[in-house]
Structures are given as C-alpha cells and as structure tokens.
Amino acid sequence: MSYRDILVFLDGSRDNDARLDIAISLAKAHDAKLTGVDVSSAAAFEGEWSERARRVGESFESKAGAAGLSSRFKIVERESAGWKDFYVHYADLLIATQPNRQAAGKILSAIPEDVLISSGVPMIVLPHRWTSKPIMQNVVIAWSPSSQATRAVHDAMPILAQAQRVSVFAFDPPSDRNDADIKMLCDHLLTHGITAETEPWPDTGELSVIEALFASRCMEDADMIVAGAYSHSRFRETLFGGVTRDLLRQFSLPVFVSH
C-alpha cells in the first residue's frame, strides 16, 4: 500500500517550507512523484510576500531535486475555472495548510476547503505555523461508523500500515448484544496487518466530541489525526461545520481527512 502521486499546495507564506518538507518526506517514503502547485493569488506578489511568492517554483524544484524525487511544478490559472484547476484529480494525496487570517487574499480562496469538497482526494491539513518534525508515527483515528470516517480510514491505510502506534478514539460507540462497533473496526484493521489500541469514550454530556478527543489518553504523543466528515444537514456544513470544522481549525496536530 502506498501513495504514488502526491500533490502539495505552494505559496509565499511562512508555512510553505514545513509543508514542502513533509510532502518531500512522504514522497520519499512512498517512492512517489511529487507535484507542486502554486496557488498564490495576484495579491501575493505585492508587499512583504512578494519575494517569497516569486521564489515558490525555484524553491520547490531545488528541494525536490536535492531529494532525488520525480517532480513537476504547476501554476494555477488565477483568472479562469476549468478542469485543470489545482491539478488535484490526478493525485493520490493532497497536502495543505489550514486557513489562516494572515494568508487571506494572498492564497486562492478554494484552498483547502473547496478543493477537498470537489476533488474526491484525501488531504493532510497542517496547522498554521506548523514546524517541520516527524509525523505519522503515532496516529489516532477519530472514528464513527459513518461513510465519511470509513472513507478516511481506507484512504489512510498506507499511513496506518507504517505507523508505530495506531489508536482508535470513538465517542459513545454503538454496540449490540453480539458486536461492538469499535472492536469490528479493529478486526478490520488487523486484516490489513494493523494492530490498534482503542479508547471508547462514553457521552456523559460533560464534554464535546473534540474536548473528549483531546482529553483522551490516546492523544498522548499523537502526531496525526485521521478523520472523516461528520454528518449534518447541508453538504458544506457536513464537512466544515461542527466537529470537522473544529478539528481542521485546531492548532495542535495535522489532520488526515477524506469525504
């Protein structure tokens, strides 16, 4: 199991280097081709961002070349919409940084939310001001028996298979007289050679899902969360409202998310 085609979004922000370093690390680990896509807006080439924005392609090609990767660099058409926008439909995995106010107007607004909604490709979303350090060694699955969470687990299998520790957090997990949902997930993971610890959390009404997740023992030394989109009424709210929105906007850990 591996990702053979990885895409990283590039821009003139100070988050760019850490994002590119993680993309290169992943591409090397999976012997993948790496595509860098410049998603800077026209405003990025004015003021304090301008020098960094102009060097995005040079920096990408230099680092990817030094790592010995097969790579290509693309620039998003900033004024038109079409089938090639963002080049995401031809990748196995996308890497982006969470939205932040400092980047507002200087990065095309579709990154990362709209792209994740429309691409059908899983994405690793890094926190703003994330520093380059190892990730994907201690991974926590934020689980619910839903199509979104199931998709995320399946998409994350290459990462889960290489992790040193995998934990499953389930908030008020369902069970009946014969089976427990969280145990059946662990049995499924085991068929892929992945042994997982479990932490079911009863819903006492005292903590929200996110509060319980970050209070749980499985988050000790965790370096990535795998999560799907939790269900609400409207499609956009399904992905970026409520629990999933809060998860993608926390500043602690990268999140691997699918929908």
Rank of each mutant, 00 (worst) to 15 (best):
L247K: 08
E58P: 00
P127Y: 10
Q164E: 15
I225C: 07
M123N: 11
T97N: 12
A42V: 12
E46P: 00
Q137V: 00
L20T: 04
R177W: 06
A32M: 05
N178C: 00
V56A: 10
T191N: 12
D221L: 02
G65N: 11
K84W: 11
D114S: 10
M1A: 13
P202W: 05
K133D: 02
I159H: 00
G68E: 13
S208F: 02
M157P: 00
Q162K: 13
Q98E: 15
G12Y: 09
F169G: 09
R249I: 01
V255A: 10
K74L: 14
C218I: 14
F256P: 05
D176Y: 08
G65K: 15
R54W: 02
T195A: 12
M123I: 15
M184T: 13
D176C: 06
D172M: 03
S146E: 13
A18G: 10
L94M: 15
A29T: 04
S13W: 08
S208R: 03
K33C: 01
V255T: 04
S146Y: 01
A227Q: 06
T131I: 14
T150Q: 03
S175Y: 12
D5C: 06
G241T: 04
V153D: 01
V39K: 08
T97L: 07
M157C: 00
R151W: 03
T150W: 03
L189N: 04
D92W: 09
G241A: 01
S231P: 00
A27G: 06
F214Q: 09
S50M: 04
P202C: 12
S208Q: 11
N178H: 13
V76S: 03
R165L: 03
D5L: 02
T131Q: 14
E58D: 12
L248I: 11
P127H: 12
D221R: 15
L185E: 06
D155Q: 07
E199R: 10
G120H: 01
I6N: 02
F9N: 11
A110I: 05
D21Y: 07
E237C: 02
Q164L: 10
